[in-house]
Design a protein around this nucleic acid. Structure first.
Lengths: 229, 229
DNA sequence: ACAATTAACTGATAAATATCATATTTTTAA
DNA sequence: TTAAAAATATGATATTTATCAGTTAATTGT
């Protein structure tokens, strides 16, 4: 199970690929592989992080608690994503909680290895910067979506997002199964509203469900709905 | 009017301060100072940027057009901020428009100077990274605010934000005067709703107005409103 | 396997917000 | 300076969304 970063394919998907052999070796020697059970936190809002987490398997939700007690899910991170980077870079406590949605396997990399490389290897820093630029662009899109689209449109968008990013299982259901509450926290609405819209979409033949599993039936119509037709 | 970056105090407020003398010299030689009149764009959504803009004076709104034809203002940038960085770094067209809210004075810095330094000076890259980490954190906060707070709470927050970031004029009005429409685009609501809430806040003695100028009268109560009391 | 807990669902209603219509004020440009 | 255009303002109403109350279904731990 335990293995060397140098041989880890996951690395190809994130900024660690810009590390030199030497640097990777150091990371590999200091990293700790950890499994996290569904529902358990990797870290929580306000924690001081002593390193970053590289996701090898499973999916984590990044969320922030609001004053009224509801969580808002800001991002769903899967294989290859590095979590906690922002906090380590700005040397502040995290503003987000990371909780496993699936059973996860992650590598913890102490911040020293990261900071060292950030200071010495401009390629690595630039690579991290590019990733963060991408995240920021996505965050801007989320802001516009949330404030300008209806809950129904955002729900449709969420289903398409889940299909495009996490795929479908052999029976045609979304591979990532979220609870209704998690869905409502992604979309930013009340859980009852999310459930109601799921029922409505089902009646209209846009999706089908089985237990908490949801499958997309009419992608075209969902897309039109997102666009506002 | 025209001056050398080496002597520019604005630089202290942004990542350019991490540049070496040599690098600054190159920037200074290639930069172009430009004035932008109120309402004119620095750049528009979809443009390919050939460089970044360093704000010397005035204020710019960064916004994104949504499908329903409304703008969402994602950020207000003032003296010292560098605009267009993300686009230059990720080598994509911008996802935001930058439009002058005030008369502005900006320096255009060709992307070559920036990219050169990004590749060679890890301190500079790290500095840019830190700024972007900060922006990303703020964006996350905006997402949570928009999805979890009422329009009234966000209006109250917007006024406090304007006071804290742009200050007040001698008569106690917010130094940055935005149109009602711009305010609604910051908050993410219909213009009529924004106007209605301004009237309500006025009646309740939270703010006072004179034409389009708005002044904060009861900061404490506004704060309580943001917190949800 | 089953009681207990939690999640999913539905209806009724209230609250928040958007939209449309229209009046008034302010700004702009000829 | 003044007519035209744009921005601000307010009322009436429709729509969207949240909240509360209660039911049914699914999960979990023993």
């Amino acid at each position: 199970m335990e293995s060397r970063c140098e041989n880890c394919i996951i690395r190809q998907f994130n900024s660690l690929r810009a590390m030199s052999k030497e640097e990777l070796k150091q990371v590999s020697d200091s990293k700790i592989t950890r499994t996290v059970k569904k529902g358990e936190p990797l870290f929580e809002e306000g924690d001081k992080l002593n390193g970053v987490y590289c996701v090898r398997n499973g999916i984590s939700k990044l969320s922030k608690l609001s004053a009224n007690g509801k969580d808002q899910i800001v991002k769903l991170a899967s294989k290859g994503e590095v979590l906690g980077q922002r906090s380590v870079i700005s040397q502040e406590s995290t503003n987000l909680s990371a909780i496993a949605v699936d059973d996860m396997e992650v590598c913890f990399i102490p911040k020293e290895s990261i900071n060292n490389t950030l200071q010495k290897n401009p390629n690595f820093t630039l690579e991290v910067l590019r990733h963060m630029a991408h995240d920021l662009k996505e965050a801007d899109d989320v802001i516009v979506n949330i404030s300008q689209k209806t809950v129904k449109q955002r729900m449709a968008e969420a289903f398409l997002y889940l299909k495009n990013n996490f795929g479908e299982d052999p029976e045609g259901f979304l591979a990532l199964t979220l609870s209704r509450e998690d869905i409502s926290n992604v979309v930013g609405t009340a859980t009852e509203s999310a459930i109601r819209i799921i029922s409505e979409f089902k009646k209209k033949g846009l999706i089908h469900t089985s237990g908490k599993k949801i499958g997309i039936k009419d992608e075209r119509k969902l897309l039109e709905m997102v666009e506002g037709f």
